[in-house]
């Protein structure tokens, strides 16, 4: 059952202004750019980190080091999934120890992605501090995690999905709330992202939905079917 577009909560101009404001906040809160690194969580956290670094370069004249983090190997739901998320490379520009790390992601939802990212970072070194910057905080946390920098707080229902679209990946800048077409009831709604790619909405799959495993169908086939529907 496909999700339909409900509301556009950010257009391209708003998104740019929001990121610019967040870049200022990051520099202000850290007292400058000393030892400050941005680490984007794949996939959409990466271009967001690059844009934040671009704004910081504009008004501070300093190019912040940028890392990319793939959290696939740290997920807590690997054994619940039939398909294997593609493991991408983690690229960190040096030793993290003593650095001030700002993790960047598009959507903060259950907090499970941020938890996995924290574990992944800890395995790479001992940063002085780790902060979290997200474009959208949609609530429904399942772990005691909060963001230090939030582009926009968006109250959502669990039946909805936040879809962040970025020029670098999707060809345009906007943030949409997607929801079920209320004319017909939907079964599995916590996934997000278009086919072939996976946004954070899809990555942080909530466990609250109905179990996507019809009776009489093997677990693997059942999960495949559910995955296909969700994406």
């Amino acid at each position: 059952m496909p999700l339909i577009e409900k509301t556009r909560i950010m257009d391209a101009d708003t998104l740019t202004r929001t990121l610019r404001r967040m870049a200022h906040e990051i520099v202000e809160r850290n007292g400058g750019t000393e030892a400050l690194w941005l680490v984007g969580i794949r996939r959409r956290g990466v271009p967001l980190a690059q844009r934040l670094a671009g704004f910081v370069a504009e008004f501070e004249g300093v190019r912040l080091p940028i890392g990319t983090l793939d959290i696939t190997l740290y997920r807590d739901d690997l054994t619940l999934k039939a398909d294997h998320p593609q493991v991408q490379k983690t690229e960190i520009p040096g030793d993290l120890t003593g650095k001030r790390i700002v993790l960047v992601d598009d959507v903060l939802y259950t907090g499970r992605t941020a938890r996995a990212a924290l574990d992944a970072l800890m395995d790479l070194g001992r940063p002085a501090i780790i902060q979290l910057a997200v474009l959208v905080d949609r609530g429904h946390r399942e772990l005691p995690i909060r963001a230090d920098y939030v582009g926009k707080n968006v109250p959502t229902s669990k039946r909805e999905v936040i879809e962040v679209r970025l020029q670098e990946i999707d060809g345009r800048d906007e943030v949409m709330i997607m929801g079920p077409d209320d004319a017909s009831p939907s079964r599995e709604l916590s996934g997000g992202g278009e086919a072939g790619s996976r946004g954070s909405g899809g990555r942080e799959r909530s466990e609250a939905g109905p179990k996507p495993r019809p009776d009489g169908v093997s677990g693997e086939a059942g999960m495949d079917e559910a995955e296909g529907r969700a994406e």
């Binding site: 793939d70 696939t72 190997l73 740290y74 690997l78 593609q86 493991v87 991408q88 490379k89 983690t90 690229e91 574990d119 992944a120 395995d123 790479l124 070194g125």
Partner: peptide
């Protein structure tokens, strides 16, 4: 190709100071 790409991501872990993930 998928196996080789995945192996490339795994090779990065082997270059870390702590060569262990909880996967």
């Amino acid at each position: 190709a998928n196996m080789l790409d995945t192996a490339e991501s795994m090779a990065e872990i082997l270059n870390r100071p702590i060569k262990r993930v909880p996967t």
